[in-house]
Simulated assay, not measured.
Amino acid sequence: MRAGETIRLTSRADGFVFEAYHVRPTDARRGGLVLIQEIFGVTDHIRELADGFAEDGYEVIAPSFYDRQQPGFQASYEAADMQAAVALSQAAPWDLVASDAQAAIDALEGPVFVAGYCWGGAAAWLVACRCDGVAAASCFYGRRISELVEETPRCPTILHFGKTDASIPMERIDEIRERHPDLPIYLYDAGHGFFSDRRKDHQPDAARLARLRTLQVFTRNGGGRGEGA
């Protein structure tokens, strides 16, 4: 049984009401966390990640960013589902993504952090650059960060990429590094989606190290233990 619940949030941009998975910490609270989905939607995997961060002391909200187009969308890793997921991700305007993420940030008591995977890795970068009230961000293999590379994060931000990720050539990573030379960029002996144990490129050692680095950047930027859950 899942530890969390479904809540509804209202976008600042247009008043659109959308759903999100919400789970509270199981022990003393470290802060809030906006967890941003892969292209596949708020799947069982994303809810599992949210539950895991709650066990680490974070109150987590995982917004359903595709609700304007297809409420409740969840895709498998099959080819047809993947094509549908890609289409939905490409049809989600960045300005509305930022607005919906801001609604999630505003629903959490600070400090508020953000983490995102795949499409969500780029969305987490967007949030770090445009949204208010973010203490730190961790972005996992965000291919579309290159579309937003001229924007600058307004909070401490770290990036994670797989060295053998065919969808993100090293040239794109070098572009980010050249534009943001002081930004921590971590490279792992892994492919795309290495954090997910549902994917063929899952690399447990890389996932553990990336998660540790994520928790460390959160801790260094206000994610210390509170007095209660």
Rank of each mutant, 00 (worst) to 15 (best):
V217Y: 10
D100M: 01
V127R: 01
K163M: 10
L215H: 10
P181D: 12
A210L: 04
A101W: 00
P181W: 09
H160V: 07
Y141S: 08
R172I: 08
D205E: 15
D174C: 01
L187C: 01
C155P: 10
M170Q: 15
G116K: 05
L126N: 10
R213K: 13
G193Y: 12
P204K: 06
T219D: 14
S167H: 12
E171K: 12
L126H: 10
H192D: 02
R144N: 15
P111L: 11
H160E: 05
A210M: 04
R177L: 07
E151T: 13
D95I: 00
L183F: 03
D205F: 05
G120E: 12
C155K: 08
E151V: 07
L88W: 02
D165R: 03
I168K: 02
C155Y: 11
D201L: 08
I173Q: 02
V114I: 14
A101F: 00
H202N: 15
A210Y: 02
E151Y: 07
Q90P: 01
D165C: 07
V134M: 06
T157L: 06
H202M: 09
V217N: 13
P111R: 10
E151S: 13
R154D: 08
V149L: 09
Y117A: 03
G162C: 02
V134C: 08
P153W: 05
F140Q: 01
F113H: 14
V86C: 05
L148V: 11
P156Y: 13
A87K: 14
H202Y: 15
A206Q: 06
G162N: 05
Y188C: 07
A128G: 05
A101R: 00
S167P: 00
K200Y: 08
V86R: 13
A103G: 06
R144K: 14
A122S: 15
G110E: 10
A115Y: 01
H160F: 05
G120C: 13
C131A: 14
P181G: 12
L88M: 04
P156Q: 12
V134S: 11
S196E: 02
L183C: 05
W119D: 09
A137T: 07
A128F: 03
I185Y: 06
M170C: 09
V86N: 05
A101H: 00
T164P: 01
A135I: 14
G142C: 11
I158K: 03
C118I: 13
A87T: 14
R211Y: 12
F113K: 12
F218A: 10
E171R: 12
R211K: 13
L148E: 08
I185V: 15
S146Q: 14
P153E: 11
P93Y: 03
A137Q: 04
S196L: 03
A136Q: 09
F195L: 12
L209M: 11
S89Q: 09
I145F: 11
P204W: 04
G120Y: 11
S138C: 12
E109F: 02
G162S: 06
G191H: 08
H160Q: 06
W94I: 13
F218K: 11
C118E: 09
E150Q: 13
A210F: 06
G162W: 03
D165P: 04
D197R: 13
Y117G: 01
P153F: 10
G120T: 14
K163T: 12
